[in-house]
C-alpha cells in the first residue's frame, strides 16, 4: 500500500435513520483512507455497509460526525472527484452503451472530440468495444455493470466507491471483474472503496479490509493484506490468501451469527 496523505477522513460518523423507529444504522466510525489505497468493507447483512458508502459519497448526510474528502468537508452532495458504482444495474436503458458512458461528460459540456476520445478509451478498457452501439437490454448483467463502471471511469474520479458491484454476478465473472477492477485501480491511481459481502473478494483485491460489526455497524477489525500492487486473481492460490480470509472470517463469524439471530 502506498503510504501518502489521507484521502478521505471519517471522524465519529454516525447515521440514525430519522422517523418514528430511529434505527441506528451506523457508527460511530473513525477511518482514514490513504490516497491510492484499495480499501474494502465486509460485514454481516444489514450492518450498514451501504449506509457507510452513501454517507461517504455525500448521498446522505451523517447524523453526527464529519467526513473530509481532499481536505474539504462532504456535506449533502457528491463532491467533485468522487465516482459511485451501485449494486443494482444503473445503466440507462434508453441509451446505447456509448451514450451511457458519455452521459456524465456531456452534462459537463465537454467538447465532442475529447468526449469521443475518453469514451473510446473507457469502452475499450472495459471490453465493451464490440457492444458500443447496443442497448443495455441486449447485454448480460455483468456487461451492464461494466457499462456503469465505464460511465464512472470516464469522469476520472480520484475516489471510486463501489457498492457490491458484482453481487448479482456468478463466481467466475466476479473473479474476472475483480481483475479488471485491479487493473483499473493500478492504471488510474484512484483510491478505491469497495463494499462487498464476499470475503474472498475482499481478501483478493484489497490493501486493507475493514470488518464491520452487526448493526449499528462499527469497525471491529482492520486487516492489512500486504499484497504487492501488481496482483491479480491468481493470488487466491497464495498461502497467505488463506490466512487473510481465515482472519476475516474469524472476526466476522460472531457478528454474522448475531445478524441471523443466533448471537
Amino acid at each position: 500500500m502506498t503510504e501518502t496523505a489521507a484521502h478521505a477522513v471519517l471522524r465519529g460518523v454516525t447515521r440514525v435513520y430519522p422517523g418514528a423507529s430511529q434505527v441506528h444504522a451506523l457508527g460511530p466510525i473513525d477511518l482514514d483512507i490513504a490516497k491510492g489505497e484499495f480499501f474494502s468493507v465486509v460485514g454481516p447483512s444489514g450492518c450498514g455497509k451501504s449506509t457507510l458508502l452513501d454517507v461517504l459519497a455525500g448521498l446522505n448526510p451523517p447524523s453526527a460526525g464529519t467526513i473530509v474528502f481532499e481536505g474539504k468537508p462532504v456535506a449533502g452532495s457528491v463532491p467533485d472527484g468522487v465516482g459511485v458504482v451501485f449494486q443494482e444495474d444503473a445503466s440507462f436503458p434508453w441509451l446505447t452503451v456509448r451514450d451511457n458512458v458519455a452521459f456524465g461528460l456531456r452534462r459537463l459540456g465537454m467538447d465532442a472530440a475529447e468526449i469521443a476520445r475518453r469514451v473510446d478509451y473507457a469502452v475499450g478498457f472495459m471490453g465493451l468495444a464490440d457492444f458500443a452501439g447496443a442497448y443495455p437490454a441486449q447485454l448480460s448483467g455483468g456487461m451492464r455493470q461494466r457499462v456503469c463502471i465505464a460511465r464512472t471511469l470516464v469522469l476520472q474520479p480520484r475516489l471510486i466507491l463501489l457498492d457490491e458491484p458484482f453481487g448479482a454476478l456468478d463466481q467466475q465473472t466476479r473473479l474476472l471483474m475483480g481483475d479488471e477492477l485491479l487493473r483499473l485501480w493500478r492504471e488510474t491511481g484512484a483510491t478505491v472503496l469497495l463494499i462487498t459481502h464476499a470475503l474472498d473478494e475482499a481478501a483478493m483485491l484489497s490493501d486493507r479490509v475493514g470488518v464491520m460489526s452487526s448493526r449499528p455497524g462499527r469497525f471491529i477489525d482492520l486487516v492489512e493484506t500486504g499484497w504487492p500492487r501488481d496482483r491479480d486473481s491468481r493470488i487466491v492460490s497464495d498461502a497467505a490468501f488463506g490466512a487473510v480470509t481465515a482472519r476475516l472470517w474469524s472476526s466476522l463469524r460472531t457478528e454474522s451469527m448475531k445478524a441471523i439471530g443466533r448471537g
Binding site: 452532495s77 457528491v78 459511485v84 451501485f86 443494482e88
Partner: peptide, 14 residues
C-alpha cells in the same frame, strides 16, 4: 421509476 437511476443522477452531480 427505479430509485437507483435517480441516485445515479445525484452521483453524477446533475
Amino acid at each position: 421509476i427505479r430509485p437507483v437511476l435517480l441516485r445515479t443522477a445525484r452521483s453524477l452531480r446533475l
